[in-house]
Design a protein around this nucleic acid. Sequence first.
DNA 1: TATGAATGAGAGTTCATTCAT
DNA 2: TATGAATGAACTCTCATTCAT
Lengths: 210, 210, 210, 210
Amino acid sequence: MTKLFDIDSERRNAILNAALKEFSSQGYDNASTNVIAKEAGISKALMFHYVSSKQELFLVVYDYFSDLIKMEYFSLMNYDEKDIFSRLRQSYLLQIKLSEKYPWILEFHKLSRTTNSNEINEELENRSRKEHASCCPKLFDEIDETKFRKELDIDKCKQFILWSAIGFTNEIIEDIRNSESPDLNYELVVEKLDGYFVELRNVFYTQSNE
Amino acid sequence: MTKLFDIDSERRNAILNAALKEFSSQGYDNASTNVIAKEAGISKALMFHYVSSKQELFLVVYDYFSDLIKMEYFSLMNYDEKDIFSRLRQSYLLQIKLSEKYPWILEFHKLSRTTNSNEINEELENRSRKEHASCCPKLFDEIDETKFRKELDIDKCKQFILWSAIGFTNEIIEDIRNSESPDLNYELVVEKLDGYFVELRNVFYTQSNE
Amino acid sequence: MTKLFDIDSERRNAILNAALKEFSSQGYDNASTNVIAKEAGISKALMFHYVSSKQELFLVVYDYFSDLIKMEYFSLMNYDEKDIFSRLRQSYLLQIKLSEKYPWILEFHKLSRTTNSNEINEELENRSRKEHASCCPKLFDEIDETKFRKELDIDKCKQFILWSAIGFTNEIIEDIRNSESPDLNYELVVEKLDGYFVELRNVFYTQSNE
Amino acid sequence: MTKLFDIDSERRNAILNAALKEFSSQGYDNASTNVIAKEAGISKALMFHYVSSKQELFLVVYDYFSDLIKMEYFSLMNYDEKDIFSRLRQSYLLQIKLSEKYPWILEFHKLSRTTNSNEINEELENRSRKEHASCCPKLFDEIDETKFRKELDIDKCKQFILWSAIGFTNEIIEDIRNSESPDLNYELVVEKLDGYFVELRNVFYTQSNE
DNA sequence: TATGAATGAGAGTTCATTCAT
DNA sequence: TATGAATGAACTCTCATTCAT
């Protein structure tokens, strides 16, 4: 239905990025197709030549980045790595790399917010039903729990670790937003990241030297 | 400027709650003054008699709840309690209590999201500059750090604890939204809460029995 | 649902007449709410305060004039008059009178044209099913058929008479459109009308002097 | 100006028929060049290569069918036939035949409806001024008026006959539109037609057996 | 010759806001 | 105090038309 995937990839990316930015920051209802078209550098009419409606644009964006994340993130993840923090590190490196090409991709999950459009809500529910809570569970699947200190409740710890990861993600996003050239501080981000992982190991793992 | 504080408190609360609900759930841009007026049970024109604009309404709501939180929350907090988790527990009990009168107050922080209105963005930045990250620092001020395991980096741990608290808050909010009679599961919430605190002590504190 | 009938009758008539003019001349699909609002002398937004949509406006206009025609035309018709041409004359006098207040009312039937909007088409079909071919049958009901020349097929003659009446109606409409002050030639129209009726009697009736 | 007449006649006919259908059924303003191009089986851009604008397309269609009617209809009419009803019969047989190749030609007159485009309105008026009511006068020219009953006003009778003919035409059109295979009921149409002519003779002519 | 890409103008509709009472 | 009426600007989307190839 959409003609978005028959066109030049540079323009396609411009549209997809612009749409992801607008939809994730403003939400579906408040997102303006005007803003998206302007940010993508094309006329509004042309955009509606590529997609038939705001709804379709939203769903195309959702599916595109959903697939992208599957292929450029999930399928590249090495789940043989059983150390949860090494896994998380892997995950962050991939995400940061993706962020270079798709600067708003870390905000992808915000697309799932409930909107005023029931059709969108239903479609989103369909997709999430298929995927069954896409990211988090697998990240924690079959991790090496023997490394955790024995007295800890593993499930609760996973929860704490997840929440910390979310908090850290938000910090990264803010860092990226606040710097014009996001590529420059790639190393700084990784350094910060590694600092956190050192500490998380201290917190949750049996100390090796004890 | 606003006449909101010259009127009957019941109506004022109706307006403030309705506005907080709409602004926090829809965001400033997408929030509808129509919906707020209807939810508050008054005409739109009357609402614009009390406040001069949507902007003013937003800022009044922001400041009102900001002050409320200061007075009904911060000033009631007992900072003599130096145990961070006991402090956090206190904090949650106070917040949940506030939620009974102001059901959307836990969502207050969502008001700070960036909007399309630059004026709003600026005003919000002014306020946050004045307050300098209103809640968190004090929550962690002068806590008893001796309880922490010696090998831990206290500052990073505080960060982890804060992120966990944020995650837990979101869980509470979802619980409240998903239940028709929020008061009933007050005890359940506290129970869950205490479970988390037990574990957090396990994680971060020196084990007493060792 | 519509607030059109709670407002000042002068403005209401302005809107109804403007809408009837636009809808009957342009058809539902091509009719412009802009044009209607401008012709009625109000803002488009106000018009959408009175009616919730173009569809509703159309249906309100349809029903209003449909009812008006029933009350100011059908119920005033004296069907005790059994002479078909006297009846038709009555009919025309009433229609011309209505045209003074509602200059486009003779075009009312054009509202029934099929449009691109299936909802409108369905609503129109519902209404026409209820009314069962509103005008014509009754006009020819129980007329005095003994006046017709014996060798004629009455049913076919009725058809011819109806078609002539339609042709005459179109002539009247054109006359009205071509003159700025339609009231002036009221008498001229009636005169022309009577000329036709004289001749129609000659054509279809047994000649009295034979 | 137009290049329509330099191209393959089959494609030309496809365009002309598609345009006649769309313009006559939707009116000039609401007609979509998209629909016409699609129905004609060519791209919109190519269509605008043949004609310079929607306006020109409309006028070309108008003039083409106007000429066609002149040549394939008017010039084939045998005006030596002085009996008006035989003439009308001739006329209908020719029209029905034309309908086979140009299915929408009976709707040609609908092109003359007033539109929102003043240029189109003016052009149409020019053409009709030149032709002076193209069809009707000649149809009634030099007919044998002696056959009419003596007491009748011939001019008015011509008017009645014309109006009946119009009514009958509409009936035929509706018949054609409502049947999937229009050719099948060709004979039925002619039969119906002849029934009307018999009666019209009864109505207007001196009865032969009296 | 033939077409997909591209656009500005305008459609219906909603919104925050002001006016009159 | 309180409200319904009123509006201009902005929204999403479609259209006839032009451009580039």
